[in-house]
Computed example of a mutant assay.
Amino acid sequence: MSSEKREEPRQLNVSVKVLNPQIFQATKFVDPRFTNIVIVAMDETGHPVEGCKVNYSCELGVVDTNSYRETDKNGLALATYYSFRVGKDVLKISLEKPGFLPTFAEAPVEVVETATPLKVVNNIGKGGILLNGERIGEGSVEKVVKQPGIYVISWENVEGYETPEPVKLYINPNFSVEPITVEGKYVAKEEKREYVELTVHVCITLDDHSGIPNPVPDAQVFLSDGQTGITDKSGFARFKVKANSGLLKIKAKHPQLYECYQEAEINIGNKDRHINLDFGIFFGGEAVVGLEI
């Protein structure tokens, strides 16, 4: 009989970190909204273990095919998870390598309904805020918009102040869940402002069956007073322009469509202004100033 001693399987220590434990559900109109899960395998001495076979399973969502199927030289594996369904899910992870005991780990993820966070803040801390004519708060309010649509923010009168101009928003959670913040700036009636804020929203209408435009990030915006800007992830570019300066020309250039522009003119007075520049489904689009349709 052989007296050779058989080695016992070693212990594999696994740590799991979910980079974003709560994500919005994916839609068919945009790249999936996902979270990454970082998996690290170490031996009992704290050294990384390379070459562990990694398997994944879950009930609600999907593990992207580009996820690591074995640990690298740093003992690391990266998984990408997304889901078209709403709910709580658990990503189950198993790691195996000859000479080590099979090891199991879990990564909880919550998938919430696609929505766009909307925040409205008044500069004076008071003044009723209305959404599509319905009073939703005073001074400051936060809402979650779940349905694509046209949303008009307006304000109640406050004695001694000029009421802010209404703001027409195109909100389409099918395409964007980037937060939107709108400021209601009440100005004392006797105050003569040196500058006002101009907000330019660059968007494009695509066929998602809602007819509501979605934001265009990274669009260049040019003003006839010489200012230029780039839209943020929500499609907004903000400028300070000289108050009561009269007619101002605005031009936006789409970042991906060759030499495709949208233009508008707006009259600058003593109040902040908002304008929507929509490139449109056939890139003809429209410019919407104030509440014009």
Rank of each mutant, 00 (worst) to 15 (best):
E7V: 08
R10P: 04
N13F: 05
N13L: 08
V14M: 13
V16G: 08
K17G: 02
V18L: 12
Q22W: 01
Q22R: 09
V30T: 14
F34V: 03
T35H: 04
I39G: 10
V40H: 07
A41E: 03
M42G: 00
D43P: 05
E44N: 12
H47Y: 06
V49P: 02
L60F: 02
V63Q: 08
T65N: 06
N66A: 05
Y68I: 07
Y68E: 13
R69V: 03
R69S: 11
R69P: 01
K73L: 09
S83E: 07
R85P: 02
K88A: 15
P98Y: 14
L101W: 13
L101V: 15
T103P: 05
A105E: 15
E110T: 14
V111K: 12
T114G: 15
A115Y: 07
T116I: 06
G125E: 13
G127P: 11
G128T: 13
L131A: 05
E134C: 03
R135K: 14
E138L: 04
S140V: 12
V145D: 04
Q147E: 14
P148Q: 11
V152R: 05
I153S: 08
E156K: 10
E159N: 12
E162R: 11
E165Y: 10
P166A: 10
V167D: 03
L169T: 06
P173R: 03
P173G: 06
S176M: 04
E178W: 04
I180F: 01
T181Q: 11
K185G: 03
K185N: 09
E191A: 10
R193P: 02
R193W: 02
E197W: 08
L198N: 03
T199A: 12
H201C: 03
V202R: 00
I204C: 12
T205S: 06
G211C: 03
P213K: 07
N214G: 13
P217G: 00
Q220S: 02
Q227I: 02
G229N: 01
D232R: 00
S234T: 02
G235D: 06
K240L: 10
K242F: 06
L247Q: 11
L248W: 11
A252V: 01
P255N: 08
P255C: 14
C260R: 08
E263H: 01
E263W: 00
A264H: 01
A264Q: 00
E265I: 07
K271Q: 14
D272M: 06
I275S: 07
F282I: 14
E286Q: 10
G290D: 13
E292Y: 01
I293S: 08
